[in-house]
Amino acid sequence: MAAPLELRNSPSGKILPAVGPFLIGGIFGFGALQGAASGADGGHVLWIALLGAACLGLGAFIARGAFDTSVKVVLDSHGFRDARAGDVLVPWSKVQSVRL
Results as ranks from 00 to 15, higher is better:
I48N: 00
W47R: 08
G35A: 11
L100P: 03
A3Q: 03
A3T: 06
T69M: 13
R84E: 02
R81L: 08
A36T: 09
G13F: 09
G57R: 08
R64M: 11
R84Y: 00
S38A: 15
W92I: 06
A63I: 05
S70G: 08
G59E: 09
W47F: 06
G20L: 15
H78V: 07
L5D: 00
G35D: 01
I15K: 10
G52D: 09
A40K: 06
D76K: 02
P21C: 14
G31L: 15
M1I: 04
L89Q: 00
C55I: 03
A18R: 14
A37N: 10
G26S: 13
G79C: 05
V19N: 05
I24N: 11
G52L: 03
I48R: 02
A32H: 09
G26W: 14
A63P: 03
F28T: 07
S12P: 03
Q96P: 05
I27S: 14
A63L: 10
L50R: 07
V90R: 07
G35R: 12
R64K: 10
L33E: 07
G20A: 13
G35I: 03
S93A: 14
I62T: 06
A66T: 03
G35Q: 10
N9A: 10
W47Y: 08
S97M: 09
G57V: 09
A66D: 05
L75D: 03
D87V: 00
P91S: 06
G52Y: 04
N9Y: 05
R99T: 15
D82S: 07
F30A: 07
A83I: 00
S77H: 13
